[in-house]
């Protein structure tokens, strides 16, 4: 602890010595981390969307003939594992829903002499259990046909998976880029201070004493970048929520504060860890170049 002031002064000196490169490293790291934050934000929102859509996963079951007592069939379906809600949609309600969907074009329904819609069951299920649920429903007496919307659901799952993979790729790219930038900056700092490092070694200074200011530099540069990225992403998410919430209220966004807290925590802790790790990589060159 007695050297903390010295370490901070040394770190400041190392940063000032190569100020232009360090400023660009700081900005570059900040923007890279901002991109990471952006991808994580999209990932978070899309995951929320997928979860909600999966919760909303819905199939329709049609009767072979209008049952006298649909409650029996409804209860049979409700008892199937993977089904969490069943509701009866009468012919009139089915027509009314279609009118809502068609909007101004709903008058075409008037061309039919009588209501073309049949009553059906609207069944909400857990998506991961779709196959056994479908099989069970098809086996129920009184059910003629089941429409499963599987293609749409599979597409949503596919998009979610692609975003997840993209997220991992971006995390890997950001990590590698940040590590390379920081370790390169540290190596430059070591090169500029090589005489001082040699002298300290000859005086018996331990490597941790010599290396700590460099670790501090790496930490400060990337953590600074993390702060910059956090500030940018906070502004962006605040504006995005304000606009999306107004223009597209049907998009199920996750709670803003929770999303922001998660992203900022990730950016700050990730930047700190990457800074220290990058410095340690950079410092490994000290051992190769300055033995003695």
């Amino acid at each position: 602890m007695k050297n903390i002031g010295y370490f901070l002064r040394e770190a400041g000196k190392i940063i000032r010595y190569n100020s232009v490169s360090n400023i660009f490293s700081f900005l570059g790291t900040g923007l890279i981390l901002f991109l990471l934050g952006l991808v994580v934000a999209v990932w978070g929102i899309s995951s929320q969307l997928v979860v909600l859509l999966q919760q909303e996963a819905e199939i329709s079951a049609y009767f072979d003939k209008l049952p006298e007592n649909p409650e029996d069939i409804i209860n049979s379906i409700k008892s199937i594992d993977g089904v969490w809600n069943v509701s009866y949609v009468g012919a009139e309600e089915a027509r009314s829903r279609m009118e809502n969907i068609l909007g101004d074009e709903s008058h075409i329904l008037d061309l039919f002499e009588k209501n073309p819609f049949e009553p059906y069951l609207e069944i909400r299920i857990h998506l991961d259990k779709i196959d056994p649920v479908l099989q069970s429903i098809r086996n129920i007496k009184g059910i003629d046909y089941v429409r499963d919307n599987r293609e749409v659901l599979e597409q949503i799952k596919g998009i979610s998976r692609a975003l997840e993979i993209l997220g991992y790729l971006v995390i890997a790219a950001v990590s590698i880029t940040t590590l390379v930038i920081i370790s390169h900056m540290i190596r430059q700092g070591i090169y500029h201070n090589r005489e001082q490092i040699k002298t300290l070694r000859l005086l018996g200074a331990p490597d941790r004493f010599i290396g700590f200011p460099f670790v501090l530099v790496g930490f400060l540069l990337t953590f600074g970048g993390g702060l910059l990225a956090s500030a940018l992403i906070t502004v962006l998410i605040n504006r995005g929520y304000a606009q999306l919430g107004g223009a597209m209220p049907f998009i199920p966004l996750p709670p803003k504060d929770r999303l922001l807290l998660g992203i900022v925590t990730l950016l700050l802790s990730g930047s700190a860890a990457l800074g220290i790790l990058g410095s340690l990589f950079g410092l490994s060159s000290i051992n190769k170049e300055n033995q003695g």
Binding site: K2, N3, Y6, K13, E195, Q196, K198, T199, L200, L202, L203, G204, A205, P206, F209
Partner: peptide
């Protein structure tokens, strides 16, 4: 750390004062 070396080319740390250089040998 138990040796006091005086080098031919001094090996003082530039950009520091005389007393900072002397203290440097004791910081660790």
């Amino acid at each position: 750390r138990d040796i006091g070396p005086v080098f031919q080319e001094f090996k003082l740390i530039s950009g520091r004062t005389a007393i900072e250089n002397v203290i440097m040998g004791m910081r660790f």
